[in-house]
């Protein structure tokens, strides 16, 4: 096992230094190797990730009377609150509002809790990081996967909602795993980034609460995209990945139409680029975790 120190640029005083070219600068970033190593970390430590997901799921609601049933109850309460807010307080006339809202709020909840949990996943394991050497990338990966499993349970409550609104059920609902996969890649990209940065700056976990709240209202979760057409906010929606993700969910679950394939594909491409960049950043700073936690 060899662990050479990373070359410190400019460390060799005395030799004449000439400004490095773009090629050299790029090579110094070590982008390709680190990203490949990152993916390798997650693949070879599958078993560890699996155990972590298991303990994560066990920990939430571990000492509650109703235990796992909360996974069904939590999203229902959310949906009920927003249904009342939208239809009674704002007096919007949305047919079958509960299903309209639930189709978007459920995936949004998944995104938000995953991101918040994953952000603290590294700092929460400070003890272990100072005692065992392991690829830290498994922590945000497991955290977001646990969120995905919870989302899977939440889907049961979505299916239950078709009992009062059977007319919305369509075969397009079967494309849900595709949309969820795109959303997962996007979530993982952000989760890895925030988990890495939060180890150094705990401000991130506080900041994130506000970011996600603003993001929620800037996404078509409790309103339709058409509601903002032509206004300035229309541009915000256009660059917000969740516009395409939530629209796709709502299409298949509420309107019975196909998902926004083009939008989803664009989000996937952007997410993969973001994921590579955040894995690179994470791998760069990973060696420092043991020193500061």
């Amino acid at each position: 096992m060899t662990t050479p120190a990373r070359a410190v640029p400019g460390a060799r005083a005395g030799t004449t230094r000439r400004p490095p070219g773009y090629r050299e600068l790029f090579l110094q970033l070590d982008l390709v190797r680190l990203v490949r190593r990152g993916f390798q970390d997650m693949r070879t430590r599958g078993r560890l990730i699996q155990y972590l997901v298991g303990t994560d799921l066990k920990r939430t609601h571990a000492d509650t009377v109703m235990g796992q049933v909360w996974w069904l109850i939590d999203p229902f309460f959310q949906m009920a609150i927003y249904s009342i807010l939208v239809t009674v307080v704002f007096a919007k006339k949305i047919p079958d509002a509960p299903l309209f809202l639930f189709a978007a709020i459920l995936p949004w909840q998944w995104f938000q809790t995953s991101l918040v949990d994953a952000t603290t996943s590294v700092t929460a394991r400070g003890n272990l990081i100072r005692q065992i050497q392991f690829p830290k990338l498994v922590l945000p990966a497991a955290s977001t996967l646990a969120g995905a499993v919870t989302f899977g349970f939440g889907l049961v409550s979505l299916l239950l909602l078709y009992i009062p609104y059977p007319s919305h059920l369509s075969p397009w609902l079967l494309t849900l795993p595709v949309i969820a996969a795109v959303q997962y890649v996007f979530t993982l990209a952000l989760a890895v980034f925030f988990a890495g940065v939060n180890a150094f700056y705990r401000d991130v976990q506080n900041l994130l609460r506000h970011i996600t709240r603003i993001w929620f209202y800037a996404s078509p979760a409790i309103y339709a995209v058409s509601a903002l057409k032509g206004s300035v906010f229309g541009y915000v929606l256009a660059v917000n990945p969740f516009t395409y993700i939530l629209t796709s969910y709502r299409n298949i679950a509420y309107y019975g139409s196909p998902p926004d394939w083009v939008g989803l594909f664009s989000v996937l491409v952007v997410s993969l680029v973001l994921l590579s960049l955040s894995i690179w950043l994470f791998k760069r700073v990973e060696t420092g975790f043991a020193k500061i936690l």
Partner: peptide, 12 residues
């Protein structure tokens, strides 16, 4: 133990 990485020099 490999928990900290060298900032200078090397360990084998």
């Amino acid at each position: 133990a490999g928990i900290l990485a060298p900032d200078e020099g090397s360990i084998r």
